[in-house]
Design a protein around this nucleic acid. Structure first.
Lengths: 328, 328
DNA sequence: TGCCTTGATGTTAGCGATAACAGGGCCTGT
DNA sequence: ACAGGCCCTGTTATCGCTAACATCAAGGCA
C-alpha cells in the first residue's frame, strides 16, 4: 500500500480512501491512485482490514453435514448470492444439530470476525441452540421455527403441501395420505400442516400420518405398507426421495402409478423427471431463499438491529405423470 | 490478551507462547495462563494472527457451482475433514470452469490470506487454468488431469470402470456398452479408459461410446437408442443418474432390467438402492479423497514444496439387482 | 570464582490497514 | 480584505497479535 502511495505521489491514507470509495477525493487523484494500483497489481490485505474494523468480508454459514438435496442446494445458492455481493462464505459443518456443536461452530466463526452468520436450522434442537447463541452479531436463521422472533427465511412448506394435496383432490381422489419427514424438522411439520389444512377445508377425512425420515429406504417401507391398503389412492410424500422409495414399493406389489395410485413429491430433485413414472412434485425456489437471506443479513450489517423480519418464499407445483384420477 | 496477561501475572508474549504451544514455558506458568484464559473466556483474534503471520487458518476451495452428487459430496467430506484439523473452509463457487473465473476465485482466496487452496478441477479447461495460477501457495487439485505434475488426488476412475465392466462380463455378457459423461471431464475419460481396457484384455469387441452428459435426461435419450438395439445386453453408465434415465427408457420400451438388459452405474447415490430395480454401482470413497487431499495440503503448508505427489483412491463395487446373466 | 550456556520471561517493533485529527488551499459572504 | 467554512490531503495512533531481541537467574565447567 505504501508502494502504491509512493507511485501515485500521495499518502497511504488517500489510497485507503480511494479503495473505500470515500467521497472527498479529487477525481484526478482518484485516477492516479487507481492507475498505480493497476500497475503494481496491488491487492488489499483483508486480514489487516478485518483487524482494524473488527469485521471481515466473510459470512459464516452453519449447516448440517449432510448431502440431503434441500440443504445442499440452499447452501450452493447462498454461496453464489454471497459471491455476487462480494462476500466470501465460510462453511462450518456440524454433525449433530445440538447446542454444543452449533455454539462451537458459531464461535469458530466469531473468531474469524465474520460479518454475519447464517444458520440452517431445520430442527427443533438446532433452533433452541440458535436462541442461546445470538451474540450481538448479524444472524439469520434459515428453515427455522416460524414461531421464533429472529430474522428468518423459509420456504413456505405449508403452501407447498396445500398445493400438492389440493392438486390430488382436484383429480378426484377422496382423500390423500401423507408420508412425512422426521417429526423434529420444521419442514416436516409445515408440510403436515398444509396437507391437513387442505383436507380439512375440503371437509374430508384426515388419515393418520405415515412417519418416515427423508430417505428412499424409509419411503420404501412406508410404501410397502400403503401398497397393501386398497383404499389408498393418493399419496403426498414429504420429499422426492421418499416418493422414489414409494414408487419402488408400489411397483413390487403390482400397483401402478398413476393408474392405481397417484403420488406427489416435494423438492423437485433434478432426476425426478426420470423416475418411473416422472414425478409430479413441489419445487422450492432456493435461489430466492438465498437472495432473501443475504438481504436480511446485509440489512443487519449496515443498519444494526432491524427487528425480526420473516420472509417466506412460495414454492411451485411441477406437473408430470404421477397423478391421475382414481381408478374406479 | 492483555487482560489475560494481567490476570495471570505474566506478559502478553507469554500468553502468546502458551497459545502456540511454544516449548520454553514453565509448566506452572502454562497452567496459570490457561486458567486465566478460561476464566475470562478469552478467544484469540484470528485476523490479527493472520495479519502478522501472513497466513490464516482458512483453506480456500474452488468448486463449480453445481449440485452434482460427486462434487457436492466431495466438498462436504472435505469440509468435515478440515474442521477436524482445526481449519475453516471458505468456498469460492464458480459458474464456469474457465481461466478467468478460476483465477478470480483463487485471487479472492489469496486476499483472505488462506493457508492453502484446493481446486476441484474435473474438466480440461479448469485444469489449464490451474496450471497458470499456482502462485507460490500450497495448492492441491482434486479430480484433475492425472498427467499434470501438481499435487493431485483423484478417485481411480479407471479401476472402478474396469471393475464394473468385468462384473458384467463375468455374468456372461458378450460385450458391454458404455454411456459416457461429458468428454471434457477427466472422470469420463478415466471411466472410458477402464471400460475399454476391461474389454480389450478379455479380447472382446469394443462398441462405440454412447455420449451423454451427467443428467438423467441425457441418460434417458441414450437409453431410448440402446433399447431399440436387441444386441445390447449389458450397459455400464458413467453415473447413477444416467442409469436412472436408462432404466426409464428401458421400462418404457418393455425391456426388463436385469432380465433383458443388465446395468451398472457409478457414484452410489443414496437413493440408488431404491431405483427399479436396485442399482448395482461403483462407490467412490469421498471421505478418503477428502482425507488425502487435506494431508497433501497440510504437508505443503508445513514443509514447503514437497514435489508433486499424486494419490488415487480405489472405489468399490456395490452389488444390487440390476445385473443378471444374458437372457438367451 | 568467574565465564559461558541454557531456559524462562519481558520488551520493543512491526504486520497493513482504518480512524481521528490536523492543516493548507480556495471559495464565500460581508 | 479578512474570517469562516468546506474540500482535499497528510500525520499519527491504533487494532491484536507474533518475531526478534534483550534480560535475568540458575547451573555447568574450567
Amino acid at each position: 500500500m505504501t508502494d502504491v502511495a509512493r507511485l501515485a505521489g500521495v499518502s497511504h491514507q488517500t489510497v485507503s480512501r480511494v479503495l473505500n470509495g470515500h467521497p472527498n477525493v479529487r477525481e484526478q487523484t482518484r485516477l492516479r491512485v487507481r492507475a498505480a494500483i493497476a500497475e503494481l497489481g496491488y491487492r488489499p490485505n483483508k486480514a489487516a482490514r478485518a483487524l482494524v474494523t473488527g469485521r471481515s468480508q466473510l459470512i459464516g454459514v452453519v449447516a448440517q453435514n449432510s448431502t440431503l438435496y434441500g440443504p445442499a442446494s440452499l447452501l450452493a445458492a447462498f454461496e453464489a448470492a454471497a459471491a455476487e455481493a462480494g462476500f466470501a462464505v465460510s462453511v462450518g459443518r456440524v454433525n449433530v444439530l445440538d447446542r454444543n456443536s452449533i455454539s462451537d461452530a458459531v464461535e469458530r466463526h466469531l473468531d474469524q470476525r465474520v460479518a454475519g452468520i447464517v444458520v440452517i436450522a431445520p430442527t427443533a434442537s438446532a433452533n433452541e441452540a440458535v436462541g442461546e447463541v445470538s451474540a450481538g452479531i448479524p444472524l439469520v436463521t434459515v428453515d427455522g421455527d416460524p414461531e421464533r422472533s429472529t430474522p428468518l427465511v423459509t420456504v413456505d412448506q405449508a403452501a407447498g403441501a396445500f398445493a400438492a394435496t389440493t392438486h390430488l383432490l382436484s383429480a378426484g381422489h377422496r382423500t390423500v395420505w401423507h408420508v412425512s419427514g422426521p417429526s423434529d424438522w420444521f419442514d416436516s411439520l409445515g408440510r403436515i400442516r398444509g396437507w391437513r389444512t387442505a383436507l380439512e377445508t375440503a371437509g374430508l377425512e384426515v388419515p393418520p400420518v405415515v412417519p418416515a425420515d427423508w430417505s428412499a429406504s424409509s419411503g420404501y417401507r412406508a410404501g410397502q405398507m400403503l401398497a397393501r391398503m386398497p383404499e389408498v389412492s393418493a399419496i403426498f410424500a414429504a420429499n422426492d426421495h421418499l416418493a422414489l422409495g414409494i414408487l419402488r414399493a408400489m411397483s413390487e406389489r403390482g400397483r401402478r402409478v398413476p393408474h392405481d395410485v397417484s403420488l406427489v413429491g416435494f423438492d423437485d430433485v433434478p432426476e425426478a423427471a426420470y423416475f418411473i413414472p416422472p414425478l409430479t412434485t413441489i419445487r422450492p425456489d432456493f435461489d430466492a431463499v438465498a437472495k432473501e437471506t443475504l438481504e436480511l443479513l446485509l440489512a443487519q450489517v449496515s443498519d444494526g438491529d432491524v427487528g425480526a423480519p420473516q420472509r417466506t418464499v412460495a414454492p411451485s407445483l411441477v406437473q408430470r405423470d404421477s397423478v391421475a384420477p382414481p381408478a374406479e
